[in-house]
Simulated assay, not measured.
Amino acid sequence: MTTEDVIAIRVPTPFAVGDVIVYLVKGDALTLIDAGPNTKEAARALQEQLAAVNVKLSDIEQVVLTHHHADHAGLLDVFSDEIEVIGHAFNEPYISQNQAFMDWQKRFFQKLLPELGVPFDTGKAEKLIRSAYAFSCTRSLTKSIREGMGIDGLEGWSVLEMPGHAESHIVLFHEKSGRMLGGDLLLANSSSNPILEAPKAGDVRSKP
C-alpha cells in the first residue's frame, strides 16, 4: 500500500463545518470511502476530481461508509444500483430513510427534548427529522461489516467500530502501513460532535 493508492478528494457541503474529505482507494476493487452530500455542487466536485485521476463514477466498484450522516452518504444516489454499498448495519435505517424508523425518531425526540428543557412540538419534530435527511440518499446496504472484519477488494484494511459521533461509525485501519481512514473521528477545526440518536430498540439511547 503506497501513498498513491489512497487519493483524498475534497467535496463541498452545505453545512457550517465546511468540506468533507472522501477517499478513492485503488485496491483490488476500486473503492470510494464515503461519498459526500447529495448536492449538485458536491457531485460536480467529486466527478471533476475523479476525472483528474482518470476515474469515472461508473468505474467505482464499491462505496464503504464510515457512517450514515448526509455529508458522507448522500451522493450514494448518483451511483448505479449495481454498486456495492458497504457499512455498519446501523447505517441502514438512515440511508434507506425507513419510514417506520423515521416515525420512531420523531416520537423519541418529542419525548426526550422536553425532558432536557427544550420546548418542542410535533411540527418542530417533523422539521428536525426532515432537515437531517435534506441532503441524504435513499439507498440500502448491500453488505454489512463489523469490528475485525476485512472488506473484499481492500486487502490489508480492517474494520474498527468507533461509535460516538454516530452509532454507525467505523474506521478502516491498515496495520502494515499504520494508516487509518477515520471519517469524522477527527476533525481539523472542531470537536467531532457527538450526536443524539434514537435507540434502535427500546427506550434507552446509547450515550455518545
Rank of each mutant, 00 (worst) to 15 (best):
T122E: 15
T13H: 09
E161A: 09
G183F: 10
S177G: 00
V118R: 04
L196F: 12
L75A: 08
R10F: 00
D77C: 06
K124L: 14
I33L: 14
E48F: 03
I7K: 08
E41W: 02
L32I: 13
G87S: 11
A35P: 02
G148L: 12
D77R: 10
S192I: 04
D59A: 11
D184T: 07
V171P: 00
Q49Y: 06
G148R: 08
E84H: 15
T66R: 09
L181C: 01
I95F: 10
S191V: 09
L46H: 05
K200C: 00
E147Q: 15
V78L: 10
L50R: 11
K124W: 05
A188D: 13
S158M: 12
L196W: 05
E167L: 12
Q62I: 04
Q105H: 12
P163T: 06
Q105S: 12
M1L: 11
L57R: 13
S58T: 15
V159N: 00
S190Y: 06
L154Q: 00
N54A: 15
N91K: 03
M149G: 03
G123C: 02
Q47G: 07
S80E: 12
E48A: 15
R139T: 03
K200H: 12
A73C: 07
A100K: 15
P12D: 00
I83M: 15
W157F: 04
D184S: 10
L50H: 02
K207V: 15
P114I: 05
P114N: 04
I151S: 13
D184V: 11
F173W: 05
W104Q: 14
A188L: 06
V22H: 04
P93A: 06
I21V: 15
A51Q: 10
V78H: 03
F108L: 10
L24I: 05
A42V: 09
S177P: 03
P163H: 10
T13Y: 07
P208Y: 14
D19C: 09
L32E: 06
T39F: 05
V78R: 14
A198T: 13
T3H: 07
S191K: 04
G183D: 04
T66E: 02
S190N: 01
L30K: 12
M102A: 13
K207G: 01
K143V: 04
H67A: 09
K40T: 11
G36Y: 01
P93T: 05
L112W: 13
I170S: 01
R107C: 00
S144L: 04
L113I: 03
L46P: 08
A16I: 08
L50P: 03
I195M: 10
M102G: 14
P93W: 08
S158A: 01
A198C: 11
G202P: 09
V6L: 06
G87D: 03
H165R: 03
